[in-house]
Design a protein around this nucleic acid. Sequence first.
RNA 1: GGAGAGAUGGCCGAGUUGGUCGAAGGCGCUCGACUCGAAAUCGAGUAGGCGGCUAAUCCCCGUCUCGUGAGUUCGAAUCUCACUCUCUCCGCCA
Length: 427
Amino acid sequence: MLDAKLIRANLAEVEAALSKRNVTGVLDKFISLDESRREILVEVEELKKFRNASSQEVGKLKKAGEDPTLLMEKVREIGQEIKELDDKLKLIEASLEEILLTLPNLPHSSVPIGEDEKSNKEIRKWGNITDFDFEPLAHWDIGTNLDILDFERAAELSGARFTVYKYAGARLERAVINFYLDVHTEKHGYKEILPPFMVNGDCMIGTGQLPKFAEDMFKLEGRDMYLIPTAEVPLTNLYRGEILDQADLPMYLTAYTPCFRAEAGSHGRDTRGIIRQHQFNKVELVKLTEPETSYEELEKLTSDAERVLQLLNLPYRVVLLSSGDMGFSAAKTYDLEVWMPSYNDYKEISSCSNCEDFQARRANIRYRPTPKDRPRYVHTLNGSGVAIGRTVAAILENYQQADGSVIIPEVLRPYMGGIEIIKKTNK
RNA sequence: GGAGAGAUGGCCGAGUUGGUCGAAGGCGCUCGACUCGAAAUCGAGUAGGCGGCUAAUCCCCGUCUCGUGAGUUCGAAUCUCACUCUCUCCGCCA
């Protein structure tokens, strides 16, 4: 959520920044509503001031044994007036809130301007594109041939965009989860959390999924309860409504969770394999920081995510998203894209963002710099560290052998119970 | 799911015959005194949102907030209703 005072004071700048995100022409209404809000507010507060003083006067009169009836009647009339103005205010404030909650974050000055992903900027590449002396298969074929991924039975159980992992496939998924959590907790200083996989609507508003993107999520029928689309939601909302001590910052959190996405707008994209699923696993990284350090922390968070791909020896590149391609809550985002032979291209496997105070304002997460200071909003950052399913897909494709087997990357072997290679016989 | 109890400031905890209650007291924290320094002790201060004023995120003023929302009243932390959550007991259950 943008700061209403900032919009008021820097209308032209905010308008320009929003246009970089392809959002135009909403601020006029905001400004006029905001003006009438303050006008009415001043008026109603004046009346309340009178009411408060008069009510005390009534008390005094009664105590003194005098008749306060006249004053009481007058205040009653004013009470009616107050009520009408308050109702009016409530309507205006609801409209203002609606506008504020649907405005995206403003892009950081270092973000390339552009309408879509065509304006994204490659920052760096790591590793060499995997070279095959045979025709490599796509992970869905590899997985099906090895009988470690079962799409048909998943469809029987749940429908399209679900996968059953079997045998060494299930083990591999779990190995990657544990490996990632261990790296981030032991090497990068993140504290491990295991949050609920269902959260209420306030959380969804806090991180920016609601009110705008309701159709992308799974909601429990008849309840104010949603399946989380990412662990970013429970992790960032963990301290919703709280004032943290400065000593608590920066706070590094990590969690493994499944993620649930309806992805209403994605029909026809990545229909095969485990790239785009209604349920997938992810290890997430979240940071709460002071505003002054959040961009340093974004660089560190991104390199923490990169580190696990390096350890797996998977080739990837880092892309700086353009203003038009960024997510709703982000001020700046780096995507990590892993090399996928089946796409003959890099494919997103992590998205690392600094949301600055955008989510903190929505979720009301603050900290007190010193005991004397007023609370300030923290900056929130999040990044996949990294997506598990896409990691498994990348491993299958990049580590496949001519005979259809898949070699397990060194670092995962301790997590695989001694399995070094997945062959067809391995069940 | 059934029965009961409760939700107050960073924390604990008073306040429920409605009237200087945004709220006693304690703890914590900040500043000061004492001290070579510290502890102990003493003194002072210490909620947040919104708005007005303003160069100002300093003051000052107003207003709102005692789980959330609505209501009664001249006036509500205190009364009424609904909801949410927590705790205890029972039932069910991984």
